[in-house]
């Protein structure tokens, strides 16, 4: 039985929803914008679905999501507006309240450090460190040459290291 276009789309592209949202949320730094961008991206993805031949639905969708997000950033110039939302704790294995406090403070520092970076740097760190994409995949998603991906990632790491050190100092001050 041949599947309908919608069903093929749902099977190939919907499973990547959480990743799409995570990227949009880190790029736009705002929950409502991220949801809107993801919804737009899915509509676009459906429109262009006939041009999707590959097996890598994740990279294909993430490319659409990041383009949608960068368009919004350009339009809104909202790079710096970073509302504080609740932090989802990574799995806690420590019952010790003091250790938990430290862990929370450090996670807040990590988040602030990441959020303080320009969107291009946040993007490459999210794609590499959270999504585990290869350089080749990142190049496909961001439509940048491999050499650019490598130098951008190196710069992003340096900037993040500085931002993290500053944020940690503030957390413990």
């Amino acid at each position: 039985m041949p599947l309908s276009r919608h069903a093929r789309f749902a099977a190939a592209i919907l499973p990547h929803l959480d990743r799409a949202h995570n990227l949009a949320r880190w790029l736009l730094a705002n929950r409502q914008d991220a949801e809107d961008a993801v919804q737009d991206s899915y509509l676009r993805a459906l429109t262009y679905f006939d041009s999707f031949h590959g097996r890598d639905g994740r990279a294909w969708l993430l490319a659409i999501v990041r383009n949608t997000c960068f368009e919004r950033l350009r339009k809104n110039r909202r790079h710096l507006e970073l509302p504080v939302e609740h932090i989802e704790l990574a799995r806690d294995t420590s019952p010790d309240p003091e250790a938990l406090q430290l862990q929370l403070a450090d996670q807040a520092a990590v988040r602030r450090g990441l959020e303080s970076l320009p969107a291009e740097f946040r993007e490459v760190l999210v794609l590499r460190e959270m999504e585990g994409l290869s350089y080749q995949q990142i190049a496909r998603v961001t439509e940048a040459p491999l050499g650019t991906v490598m130098s951008r990632l190196a710069r992003a790491r340096r900037r993040f290291e500085e931002a993290l050190a500053a944020a940690r100092k503030e957390e413990t001050a």
């Binding site: 862990q103 450090d106 996670q107 988040r111 450090g113 760190l125 460190e129 959270m130």
Partner: peptide, 8 residues
């Protein structure tokens, strides 16, 4: 450190 950052 990034591994410990929140996922959305």
């Amino acid at each position: 450190a990034i591994e410990s950052a929140p996922r959305y």
